[in-house]
Nucleic acid binder design. Structure first.
Length: 452
DNA sequence: TTTTGAGTTGTTCGA
DNA sequence: GTCGAACAACTCAAA
């Protein structure tokens, strides 16, 4: 039997892998990863480094038989087909805008060459497009989607796939690990399970509360592994019980599916407001806006919780989710900048950067997304800091200039009796004033819509 | 078709 | 310090 090619993309694991199992059932398999310059350009150093470490781990699990090719996917696939005489290509289906158009083009081209192309399974619990509301339309609200998703169900995870790897090809290099200056998590399938086991044995049972405290390890930290498929969400669901806290974690996995579904239905929503009328919202641009964006980006806004988050992002390629919301709200509602500007910065630096979750997380914060959240929801960066980091453990870790301040004034150093600490900026804007400005802009938008 | 209930994560004000 | 109400009205999803 001639070999099949298994084309790895966002599924860098050997367990619970239906698409790989389908390839393996057909005979020898060339395990291929294509270094696509188009995708590498979109990754910052941290994500690229994590990806390459994940590939190195996968290669080790495959006894060194992972084949790397560099170039446009169709050319790389044709060259492997020419070298091995492979007659079929298998891959896990991709539902993002770039992946869909790439896979359609590749599928048509290879079909023309007489090659069988199979896209199976997905990186999600339920593949996008499978869950529709009673009216046959896609869901736009999370809660009914969550209910339908649970009702729909999912297959039990499979075991490790036994593969007869085709060893005839020389591989190109995985690529250097770019210098990031970031502390990245350990990559690979075993590392994913180490993290998952630790989380599922302990923090998951306090998840509802603990996930909101950025000063402790209360979140799963599994997002980078889910991004590259070193673990599949099915495998996590299979380990969850029915306590309230476990159900909250289950809902977080469902959010990942939900946003993939929304992006699948509306590919334009990666860059543009999901709610069309919000594109007319007034945003600030120009030199002052750029200066403020730079202060935000580098963690120099004078609001400790915002600066802590932005610095954590640069240092770890990751930011605590509670803090993602706070810095997002600050960019959009205090600085009046376009959410997509913040989203692009996140996508550059996040190790777990996922287009669907990132774009729609930002749109939720900006009020341009799928939920009908009340317009007066503006995060207060001081209030959030006091509420969720009461002992300032997170602030002291990431903003050492103010670490000596007491637990009360550290959240708003400008109120410090001894005067503002040296080496830390004063607040670049006044939150109370900018909150009112944000509400005014929404009011003005509404008035314009009513007139027009 | 119409009706009804509900909607991730908030803030502020005043009692 | 704590608590409930107001914020302002709209869209979605199901019955």
């Amino acid at each position: 039997m001639p070999s099949s090619i298994f084309w790895f993309r966002r599924d860098l694991r050997l367990a619970d892998h239906p698409a790989l199992a389908a390839a393996a059932a057909r005979g020898p398999v060339v395990g291929l990863f294509i270094r696509d310059a188009e995708l590498e350009q979109r990754s910052g150093a941290a994500r690229l480094s994590f990806l390459r470490s994940s590939l190195a781990d996968l290669n080790a699990s495959m006894d060194g038989n992972l084949v790397i090719k560099t170039g446009a996917p169709i050319e790389a696939l044709r060259s492997v087909i020419a070298e091995t005489g492979a007659t079929a290509v298998f891959a896990t289906d991709d539902y993002g805008p770039y992946g869909r158009s790439r896979d359609t083009a590749v599928g048509e081209a290879l079909a023309g060459d007489g090659i069988d192309v199979h896209y199976l399974d997905s990186p999600y619990v339920v593949p996008p497009g499978s869950i529709l509301s009673g009216g046959g339309t896609p869901y736009k609200v999370f809660t009914p989607f969550f209910k339908a998703w649970k009702k729909h169900g999912w297959p039990a995870p499979g075991g490790v796939v036994e593969v007869n790897w085709d060893t005839s090809l020389e591989s190109e290099p995985i690529g250097e690990l770019p210098e990031t200056g970031s502390e990245l998590p350990a990559a690979g399938e075993a590392a994913a399970w180490e993290r998952a086991d630790a989380f599922l044995a302990d923090a998951v049972f306090r998840y509802d509360e603990a996930r909101n405290d950025p000063g402790i390890e209360g979140t799963s930290r599994l997002s980078p592994y889910l991004k590259f498929g070193t673990i599949h969400p099915r495998q996590l669901l299979d380990r969850l019980g029915d306590t309230r806290d476990e159900d909250v974690f289950r809902s977080e996995l469902c959010w990942r599916d939900f946003y993939a579904e929304v992006l699948f239905q509306r590919p334009d929503s990666a860059r543009n407001a999901f709610v069309a009328k919000m594109v007319d919202m007034e945003i600030d641009e120009g030199p002052l806006a750029d200066e403020r964006f730079d202060a935000w980006r580098t963690g120099q806004t004078g609001y400790p919780i915002v600066d802590a988050g932005m610095r954590q992002l640069l240092a770890e390629g990751w930011m605590h989710n509670r803090v993602r919301m706070i810095v997002g709200s600050f960019l959009v509602k205090d600085l009046h900048l376009d959410w997509s500007r913040g989203a692009r910065h996140f996508m550059t630096h996040l190790v777990d950067g996922d287009l669907a979750s990132n774009s729609h997380g930002w749109q939720w914060v900006a009020g341009t997304g799928t939920d009908a959240s009340p317009y007066f929801r503006v995060f207060n960066p001081v209030g959030q800091s006091r509420k969720f980091d009461p002992t300032a453990r997170y602030l002291r870790r990431w903003v050492p200039e103010i670490a000596h301040l007491d637990d009360k004034s550290i959240h708003e150093p400008w109120t410090c009796k001894a005067g503002a600490p040296a080496g830390y900026p004063g607040p670049i804007v006044d939150h109370a004033a900018e909150r009112i400005e944000a509400l005014d802009r929404l009011k003005r938008l509404k008035n314009r819509l009513e007139e027009g």
